[in-house]
Computed example of a mutant assay.
Amino acid sequence: MQFASKLGKRIAAFAALAAAAVTLSACGFNTIPTKQEATKAKWADVQSQYQRRADLIPNLVSTVQGAAIQERTTLTEVVEARAKATSVNVDASTITDPAKFQQFQQAQDGLSSALGRLMVVVERYPDLKSNQNFLALQSQLEGTENRINIARNDYNESARDFNTTLRTFPSIVWAKTIYGGEKPFEYFQAAAGAQNAPSVNFDGLKPSDPAPAAPAAAPATVQ
């Protein structure tokens, strides 16, 4: 009888815990951390694609130098933009800090703009456009740019879903209490002038300047 009584109490306790878990789940207690982790995963995808692009640029610069070495200014812009983009410190707080997020996006958009101008310059060099190594790198960059756009859109959608969760019932109850310290995520915005084709002032190029050194493929700081 004593054994049966203890067993009955354990079963009752287990049933109570199970019921509590179901209740918490039904009222949205787990919704905030679940969506938060999903958004962080999307952010990691964005980071991965930007890093892939940064790693392709050293070979691209070296290839262009060999066929269009007089285009010093445009190559220097690419090298400097990559250095700036990879020097931005990125950690978990970036996607909830408006200033950090804007700094990150501006640096990446600056690199996109510099690469766009470089591709305009390439049009002046038929030999370079037929270079197999350059064509392979160009194809990889185009594919990476597409993946960056997809990753950014997926992140924005996940961030929107999470941010809405913080403001709607019943999850807002937990957002104001247990998860009161959680901040909304920032969104990627279209770069200013993104709808315009890159412009290059060829008169401003300086053939006498020394060629820029190809950047090393050092990864950005990610935590």
Rank of each mutant, 00 (worst) to 15 (best):
Q51A: 07
L75W: 00
V22G: 13
L135G: 04
Q49G: 03
A175W: 02
V79P: 12
L115S: 00
Y155E: 07
A136P: 07
Q2D: 15
G28L: 09
T39L: 13
N149A: 05
L128R: 03
D91E: 12
P215N: 08
C27K: 12
P215W: 01
R82K: 14
S93L: 12
P98V: 10
G193L: 00
E71Y: 01
A107L: 09
L17S: 06
A99R: 12
Q138G: 04
E123Q: 12
A107Q: 05
R117P: 00
F14S: 10
V88N: 09
G66W: 02
A217V: 13
E37Q: 14
E80T: 02
A107T: 08
A194H: 14
A13I: 14
N163S: 09
F3D: 12
Q223Y: 03
A190S: 05
F162P: 07
Q108L: 02
K183C: 08
Q223V: 02
I95C: 11
S112I: 00
P198Q: 00
Q49S: 11
T76F: 02
A68G: 06
A18T: 05
F162G: 05
A12V: 09
F101T: 08
A107M: 08
Y50F: 06
F185E: 05
V121D: 00
T34F: 08
A99Y: 12
A16K: 10
Q132K: 13
V90I: 08
A13L: 15
S93R: 11
L166P: 06
S139M: 04
V88P: 11
A26T: 13
T31V: 03
A159P: 05
D55F: 04
D109G: 04
F162E: 01
P98I: 03
Q47M: 13
L24A: 03
V120G: 00
N146R: 12
S25P: 11
A4H: 10
A217S: 14
A216F: 05
P170Q: 11
Q103K: 15
A19K: 08
D209H: 09
P126A: 02
S130A: 15
F29D: 00
T165I: 07
V120D: 00
D209A: 14
Q65S: 15
R82Q: 07
G8N: 04
A216N: 10
V46L: 14
G180P: 11
A85H: 10
L75K: 03
P210G: 09
Q36T: 07
V61P: 01
V88I: 07
T177I: 06
L60D: 00
D161Y: 10
R152K: 05
D209I: 04
E71F: 02
K84V: 01
E186G: 13
A192W: 05
F202C: 02
V122E: 00
F162W: 05
S208M: 12
V79Q: 08
Y155R: 08
F29T: 01
Q223R: 09
A18D: 09
A213E: 15
N153F: 11
A114P: 01
P212R: 12
E142T: 05
V46S: 10
G181L: 08
L166G: 07
A136W: 07
P215Y: 03
S158G: 14
E71M: 02
T31I: 02
T168D: 13
A92C: 04
V173I: 11
D91K: 13
A159N: 04
S208R: 07
P207I: 10
Q106W: 09
L135R: 12
D209R: 11
